[in-house]
Each structure stands twice: as structure tokens, then as C-alpha cells.
Design a protein around this nucleic acid. Structure first.
Length: 271
RNA sequence: GCUUUCUUUAAAG
């Protein structure tokens, strides 16, 4: 039994959910809430919200009372599944249990409401937090962007800065596309400028570099998009597509075709 | 021992 749970944890560590589940099901006694939570979170992490919720319901049926870890896990699953109704129930339960005093639970509530497109509720949770951390800020900034409130995203980004928090790649992954969608070159430059000044511009992934390129491209500054492109060591198909599209849409047919052939030479296949 | 955040590739999704 002890060995079995160790094995489940081991499979979970490597995201081998099928194997983890198989061993889990064979456990004669399933009274360890940590194991249940780990199963729920394992499914959440691979995007299987339905399976995560099924495990959670079974856990409750066995009579175990969800602790705050279980609550964060199930809220994450509900966020993925965009199930607000159940999300609200879990929220109410958290309050009843006093879990809403914990910052992690509040952070995931922001995310849950946001992913369920209930921005007002997300903001209410955020606003009423006694203390906020980088997850709180990143969550609220991200859900505003996800909901298409680009101005709100940038407003919160500024609020984050003035509150003394240092944005990271997660923040930029939301703030940059906000500028992109607004075609706000100046504000995009401010965000990119912040990254440069703080030495964060080269630390990001290809994904972030692409977001910067796309911001410049969609804001009409192909020169700057090109500079970022050239400085980006690891390019992927999206990097090339952003440039080809940008040149194409702005009437630089030659450059677009150029890019296109370079992409094919580089061994990448266009979409 | 288990927990939270990342919409990069321009037209009706």
C-alpha cells in the first residue's frame, strides 16, 4: 500500500497518467488525500479537466473532505473546463472552510473566474486580496488579455509596476499581445523597453521573441520586427510566418518572398 | 509528500 502510493507519485512526476491511474485503482485503501490531490493535479497538468473532475468527485464520495490543495486542484480543473457554476460552489466552500485566506486559493480563483469569462468576479477577488504576489498579478493580467480587454491588461500591467512587482515572462506573454491587438506601437515599445532595460529581452523563449516581433509587425514597424528577428537565435515556424505575413500585409512583397524562400532553405516548412 | 499564472504566426473562428 505504501509502495503503491510511492509508485503513483513516481508516475505522476513524469506525467504518466495512465500508469499512475492503473496503480492508483489497484490500491486497496485510498485514504490518502495527498494521493487524490496529486491525481487531480496530474490530470489538470495534461489538460484533462474531465478526468481531473471525476477523480475529485470520487474523492469526495469516499468521504474525504477537500483540503486547500484539493480546492486549488479542482478550481484549476474547473477553470480549464470553464465551469463557472461549480467554480462558484467551490468558491463558497472555500470561504466556509477558511481556505480563502490562503493566497494560492485566491490566485486560482482569479484564474478560474477569468477563464470562465467572469472578469468582474476575477477582479473582485483580486481587488479584495490582502496581499498579492506575482501569481496574483500575472493571473489578473493574463485573464484580462484572454478576455480581450487589452486596455485593461495594460492598465493592470502598469499597476503591477507601480505596486513594485517585477513582471516576468508570463506577464509579457499577456502585455505584448495586448499592445499588438491595439496596434499600440508606443505602448508596445514601452513594454519591450522595460524588458531591455531590465535585461529580460534575451532571457525569454522563442515564444516571447515571437510575441515581440508580432507586436512590431502588427504595429507597422517591420524594421524593428526585423531587428528582433535577426537577434533571435532560435527561430521557429511562427517566427518566419510573423515576418512573412508582416511584410506581405504591409506591401513589401519582395521581402516577404525573400523571407519565404529563406524559411524553406532553413528546412522549415511553411504552414 | 499534493496546490495557483503565459492568446506568438493579420479577414465570418
Amino acid at each position: 500500500m505504501f509502495i503503491g502510493s510511492g509508485l503513483v507519485h513516481c508516475y505522476l512526476k513524469f506525467k504518466l497518467m495512465d500508469d499512475a491511474l492503473q496503480v492508483f485503482e489497484r490500491l486497496p485503501v485510498k485514504d490518502d488525500i495527498v494521493l487524490w490531490n496529486a491525481m487531480v493535479n496530474g490530470y489538470v497538468q495534461i489538460g484533462e479537466s474531465g478526468k481531473a473532475l471525476t477523480i475529485f468527485r470520487r474523492m469526495v464520495e469516499t468521504g474525504l473532505v477537500p483540503n486547500k490543495f484539493a480546492v486549488t486542484g479542482v478550481l484549476s480543473a474547473l477553470a480549464l473546463a470553464a465551469e463557472v457554476y461549480n467554480g462558484r460552489m467551490v468558491h463558497a466552500f472555500s470561504i466556509k472552510m477558511g481556505y480563502d485566506m490562503g493566497i494560492e486559493v485566491l490566485n486560482v480563483l482569479i484564474d478560474m473566474y477569468g477563464k470562465c469569462r467572469q472578469l468582474e468576479d476575477a477582479f473582485l477577488v483580486f481587488e479584495n486580496m490582502i496581499e498579492k504576489d506575482i501569481y496574483s498579478w500575472n493571473s489578473i493580467v493574463s485573464v484580462y488579455e484572454q478576455c480581450g480587454d487589452h486596455d485593461g491588461t495594460l492598465r493592470l500591467f502598469k499597476g503591477m509596476l507601480s505596486s513594485g512587482f517585477r513582471p516576468d515572462m508570463v506577464t509579457f506573454a499577456a502585455a505584448l499581445p495586448a499592445c499588438t491587438h491595439l496596434s499600440a506601437l508606443m505602448r508596445g515599445k514601452e513594454v519591450h523597453g522595460y524588458m531591455i532595460v531590465n535585461g529580460l529581452d534575451k532571457l525569454g523563449s522563442t515564444y516571447i521573441a515571437n510575441a515581440i516581433m508580432d507586436m512590431y509587425a502588427k504595429c507597422g514597424s517591420m524594421m524593428e520586427a526585423r531587428m528582433v528577428f535577426d537577434e533571435t537565435k532560435v527561430k521557429d515556424v511562427a517566427s518566419w510566418n510573423i515576418m512573412v505575413m508582416g511584410y506581405g500585409m504591409q506591401g513589401f512583397g519582395d521581402e516577404a518572398l525573400n523571407m519565404f524562400s529563406c524559411m524553406c532553405e532553413g528546412g522549415l516548412k511553411p504552414d
